[in-house]
Simulated scan of single mutants.
Amino acid sequence: MQNFEKRRDRYNAFASFENPLVNLSFQLEVPDFRPFCKQNGLPTFHFFLYHVLHAIKGIENFMYRVHKGEVIRIEDFWASYTVLNQDKNLNFARFVMTEDLKEFVARSVAASQEAEASTKLINTSEALSEYDQRRNVHITCMPWLNLSAIEHPIYEHKSYDIPSLAWGRYSPPRDDGKLTMTMAVQAHHGFVDGYHVHLLAESIGARIAQTMAS
Rank of each mutant, 00 (worst) to 15 (best):
W78R: 15
H54K: 02
E75T: 14
H51S: 05
M63F: 07
F26V: 13
V71A: 08
I56V: 13
L49H: 09
F45P: 01
P43I: 11
I72Y: 13
I59H: 06
R73C: 11
H51A: 01
S25R: 02
E75I: 05
A55M: 03
I74T: 09
G58I: 13
P43G: 07
H54G: 05
N61V: 13
W78P: 06
A79Y: 00
R65N: 08
L28M: 05
T44C: 01
F26H: 14
E29V: 08
N40F: 00
F45C: 03
L53V: 00
F26I: 10
T44R: 04
P31T: 03
I72S: 01
V52F: 06
V66A: 03
I56P: 01
K38G: 08
P35I: 14
G41N: 10
F62I: 13
A79R: 03
H54Y: 03
L53H: 15
T44W: 01
L53G: 09
R73W: 07
G69W: 05
V30D: 02
L53D: 15
E70R: 12
P31F: 01
F48P: 09
G41I: 04
D76Y: 10
E75R: 14
V66K: 02
N40E: 15
S80T: 07
F48G: 00
F26W: 14
D32A: 11
I72W: 08
E29C: 03
F26M: 14
F48H: 11
F45Q: 02
W78K: 15
R73K: 08
P35D: 15
P31Y: 04
W78N: 15
